[in-house]
Design a binder for these strands. Structure first.
Length: 122
RNA sequence: GGAGCCGGCCAGGCAAUCGCCGCCGCGAAAGCGGGGGAGGAAAGUCCGGGCUUCAUAGGGCAAGGUGCCAGGUAACGCCUGGGCGGCGAGAGCCGACGGAAAGUGCCACAGAGAACAGACCGCCGAUGGCCCGCAAGGGAUCAGGCAAGGGUGAAACGGUGCGGUAAGAGCGCACCGCGGGGCCGGCAACGGCAACGGCACGGUAAACCCCACCGGAAGCAAGGCCAAAUAGGGAUGGACGUAGCCGUAAGGCUACAACGCGCGGCCCGCGCGCCAUCCGGGUAGGCUGCUAAAGCGCCGCGGUGACGCGUCGCGUAGAGGAAUGGUUGCCUCGGCCCGCAAGGGCUCAGGACAGAACCCGGCUUAUAGGCCGGCUCCCACU
């Protein structure tokens, strides 16, 4: 289970996204925003992606950015507490190099995990 | 060798490893194994179909579209062949390319005049006047004639030349153009031929319009099926005064003879109140539509060709908050550096345009680098 990313580790239902957007804590970094909520039913951490067409007009770029985020999540999620995270891409994220994006994501993961750790431990 | 034209094709390669999405097999499951997993444009959504639902007796009109002819096709605004016009030295390329003799409108500015036209400059002044002269004749230009030349314009009521004339004019002639008819070739668009007619008929239809053909609407979030919980609807049956409390439940106890709601202004009255089963609608959710297709490839036959027919082989992504990727190594191409060169080195965020969403046929647009075939022109050599 080291670095897998099966289907159940994703947010799939509109309700799950809605919960993150309405109740989640917002963590802002350059180009990306994370919406974190400690996951209710699942014991694993789950990821949802929101890359709006407005922020990234071309489909190729949207796919590329989603893949980069997923890859980062996949390799690190074993250390995460049970939480639901929605990563929201904002305008300008196309200018980020893969290295920059990866750094930003690392910061977001640690911040998100810190946010959820106390509630998960209790 | 250089310059260019046309058609077709590829879309960095191999390996290791960590992942993702379907399918098949094993497994109770976790998972494991096997095999498959973006494009030539998947894009723009501009046309044409299939499929689906709704509408529709039949037919007509309208909106909208198409527009040389013939063929191909399921169909098309596509493709092929042919015709005509334009461009190019050529290979070739480009063209909304039906009708202006059905009608209506418009043709600005400039210009004298713009559609059954017109005389600014100009030319002439033969003829009739005028002046000079004896006369022959000469002169100016009043009447008048002309439209060749100048000038305007996108366009000036055929063009060029010769004759002709006072000057001119299709006035006459030759050639070219034009016209209607004839003959010949062609399925046709159209082309050719000789004679005839002195020329009549300006342009504009991406202006209205006329003619011919097409022409119902919306789209896979189409549409079909299954269907939890909660609330509500209907039917049937049962229990039964109602409310509270106790009990897992069957039921028991207490209180009131009364209550609440609906019908109604009020009373009487009537109905409902609890439980079970069934039915239909329908939400979340799930399944389906969903990929075998007007499919692709080889060969043969028919056809100038688009394409058609036949044999054989292949069977090719199906997600659904949406997979098709990350990392590393080697090679390749590119870039940069060194070198006269062969070659060597650097190891770079360098590798075009771009990501399927029901499926096909087209069109249009984007596209690094490269390969193959055919053809044209120029230069050199033999």
């Amino acid at each position: 289970m080291t670095a897998r990313f099966p289907r159940r580790a994703r947010l799939q239902k509109p309700g799950e996204f809605k919960a993150a957007f309405e109740r989640g804590s917002r963590l802002n970094e350059k180009w990306l925003t994370a919406l974190v909520v400690s996951s209710g039913d699942s014991s694993e951490s789950r990821l949802g992606l929101a890359v709006p067409k407005k922020a990234v007009p071309r489909a190729v770029d949207r796919n590329r950015i989603k893949r980069q985020i997923r890859e980062s999540f996949r390799t690190r999620r074993a250390a995460f507490p049970a939480m639901d995270v929605v990563i929201l891409a904002r305008g300008g994220c196309l200018q980020a190099t893969p290295e920059q994006l990866s750094d930003i994501l690392d910061r977001l993961w640690t911040r998100a995990a810190a946010k959820c750790a106390p509630s998960a431990s209790s």
